[in-house]
């Protein structure tokens, strides 16, 4: 199906059922991810610009920004995270149900950006695990799409067996928490 997943012949007997389920499960998840609406600062306008007519984010199934984190699976952190706002970001992240992904958009979310000051958190990965980093100040909508496609590739490479709710072999959450813990 995909060139990047070469399935050896001898494993096909063992895995054929799981890979079909995997494929459908991942296909369903990646093409209708719903981002939680979390535009904090300037990058929010490029994110909204990415969802309008010229750069259409609806072709990735994401035009539906959900205000409530309980309905969303992707958090696009667009903008500067200040120390006053950081606990709220963490709270929203913890309210999102698994499986969830985080995309840090823009230099400020990645590492504080040009604001090396007393009031800015120097990077979102101090408080939550980030999957994809999209640099730029602000990144163009095309760059954001590149990041989204990387998330899709990540989702495709996951297996049903690795999630916590599937059977006895499931591990706990597939990656650790933030960088410090």
């Amino acid at each position: 199906m995909f060139e990047d997943e070469k399935i050896p012949v001898e494993e096909i007997d063992r895995k054929i059922l799981v890979t079909s389920v995997d494929w459908i499960y991942n296909w369903g998840r990646q093409y209708s991810m719903w981002p939680v609406m979390f535009g904090l600062a300037c990058c929010a306008f490029e994110m909204i610009g990415a969802s309008t007519a010229r750069y259409d984010i609806a072709r990735f199934g994401m035009e539906f920004y959900r205000p409530s984190p309980r309905h969303a699976d992707l958090m696009i952190l667009a903008g500067t995270i200040t120390h006053k706002m950081a606990p709220q970001v963490k709270r929203i992240w913890e309210q999102m149900p698994e499986p969830k992904y985080c995309l840090a958009m823009g230099s400020c979310a990645i590492s504080g950006g040009i604001f090396k000051s007393y009031a800015v958190l120097q990077g979102a990965d101090e408080i939550l695990p980030v999957d994809v980093y999209v640099p730029g100040c602000p990144p163009r909508p095309e760059a954001l799409f590149d990041g989204i496609l990387k998330i899709h590739r990540m989702v495709r490479a996951q297996s049903v067996k690795g999630v916590s709710w599937y059977g006895k072999e499931g591990s706990s959450s597939r990656r650790g928490a933030s960088r410090d813990e």
Binding site: L40, T82, K84, F115, S117, V120
Partner: peptide
């Protein structure tokens, strides 16, 4: 206010 206070004046 203050959730986006980035300390621009000091910087």
């Amino acid at each position: 206010f203050g959730y986006l206070h980035r300390g621009l004046e000091k910087t």
